[in-house]
Design a protein around this nucleic acid. Structure first.
Lengths: 195, 195
DNA sequence: GGGCAAACGGAACCTTACTCCGATAACGAG
DNA sequence: CTCGTTATCGGAGTAAGGTTCCGTTTGCCC
C-alpha cells in the first residue's frame, strides 16, 4: 500500500512477463481446442495443449465463460460494430437486419457448441450470457426499431426474444447435415414481416 | 426354449412380479424427479426416490434415453395421434399444422430440460432422438404436405428441419420469463406462408 | 420345501470440474 | 550482480456424478 500506484488513475502496473505470455498461449490453445472439441472441451485438454498447469488456467480465466469471452471477443465486437454500418449501407433497415442476423448466425454455427452453451442455464455461464446481451442486444434493438419504424416488420418484436430465438436455432447446426440453421433463421425473419 | 414362450408368436414370458413393480415405481419416481429437477437429474436421486438401488435403474433402463422415452411415451403417442385428427377437424391444413405445432411446443416447454436433451449430440441420447423422429416426423410431414398442397405454405419446407427448429426454439423456455417460445414458434410458422 | 435363475442393492471405479499450497522464477533495489 | 519480495506456476487433492460389477436376495416352478 505504498507508492505502488495501482490506484485508480494510472495504467495498471504491467503484469509479469511470464504471466502475459501464458495468457496469450492459453488463448491460442483454447481457440485451437475449441475448434476441434467444442467450447466445452475438458479444461485439462486446454491446459495440456498450452503446456501449463491447471492452476494457471483458472488464475487467468476463473470461469469457462471468461475464457470463451476472451477467445471470441474480437469477433463479437466486430459483429456488434457491423450493425450500425449495415444500417447505413443497406437500402432498407430490413435488409440490414437480415444481413446482420446472418453475420450473427455465421459466427455461432462455426463455433462448435457455443450456441448451446449460450442458452445453458448453468450459472457458470452467466458472464458469457451477459456479455453477449450487453454487446449485441442494443445493436439488434436498433436494427429492429429502424425496421419497425420503416413499417417493414411488425412492431411488437422484442429484441431479446429474437436474439434468444436465433441463438437457439443455431444449436447443433454443425454435426447435422440435415439441419440448416441459416434457412430456419431466414424463415423466422420472414415471419417478422408486417402481416 | 419350449414353454418359456419367449418365442416370436406368444406374449413375452411374464417377468417376475417384483421386476414389474419396480419398473412402475421407477417410472413414477422418474416422472416426479423430472418435474422438479429436470430430465437430467442425477441417477442417484431417481434411485433414492424410488427406493431402489442403482443397479435396478440401469437394468430396466440401460440409458437415460430409455427412461425418458418410457416416462413420456404416452404423451408423445398422443401428440402423434393428434396430427391426423387435427387435419380432419380443422378448416384448413395450415390451421391444423399450427394447432399441432402448438401441442408439440406445449409438451416440450413443460418438460424441464427435455428440449435441450433432444438436441444434444451426446450419443447416449440417440435412442431418444430416434424415437421422437420416428413417431412425430411422419405426422409433421403429413401436415406440411397437406398445407403445401393446399397452397398455404411454401412447398420447400423440410419436416425434419422444421421439427428440429421448433424443438430448438423450446430450449430454455422455462426458467426465463423474458423468453416465450410459443411466440417465436408462431413467428416461424408465419414465415412458412407462401411468399 | 428346495433349487435355480432372475433381480436386487450398493460399493467401487472413472471421468471431469475446481481448489489449494509448496516450489519457482521474475522484477526491482542496492 | 546479488538478493529479497512476491506474483505466478504446476499438479496433487477434493467433490460430484455416471456406470459397472458381483455377492446376496427373492420370486417362481416343481
Amino acid at each position: 500500500m505504498k507508492d505502488s500506484g495501482e490506484g485508480t488513475g494510472h495504467a495498471a502496473r504491467p503484469k509479469r512477463a511470464d504471466a502475459r505470455r501464458n495468457k496469450e498461449t492459453l488463448l491460442d490453445a483454447a481457440a485451437a481446442v475449441f475448434v476441434t472439441s467444442g467450447v466445452e472441451a475438458p479444461v485439462r485438454d486446454i491446459a495440456t495443449k498450452a503446456g501449463v498447469g491447471m492452476g494457471t488456467i483458472y488464475r487467468h480465466f476463473p470461469t469457462r465463460a471468461d475464457l470463451i469471452i476472451a477467445v471470441y471477443r474480437h469477433q463479437i465486437e466486430a459483429c456488434a460494430e457491423a450493425g450500425p454500418a449495415l444500417l447505413a449501407s443497406c437500402p432498407t433497415p430490413h435488409a440490414a437486419l437480415g444481413r446482420w442476423i446472418n453475420l450473427f448466425v455465421d459466427f455461432l454455427v462455426t463455433k462448435h457448441g457455443l450456441a448451446a452453451v449460450l442458452q445453458s442455464d448453468d450459472a457458470g455461464f452467466d458472464a458469457l450470457h451477459a456479455y453477449f446481451l450487453e454487446r449485441l442486444l442494443p445493436v439488434c434493438a436498433q436494427l429492429l426499431e429502424a425496421a419497425a419504424t420503416a413499417g417493414e416488420i411488425r412492431p411488437d418484436v422484442d429484441a431479446y426474444e429474437l436474439m434468444r430465438g436465433v441463438g437457439n436455432l443455431c444449436i447443433g447446426a454443425d454435426h447435422d447435415p440435415r439441419y440448416d440453421a441459416r434457412r430456419l433463421v431466414e424463415l423466422l425473419i420472414a415471419g417478422l414481416r408486417r402481416p
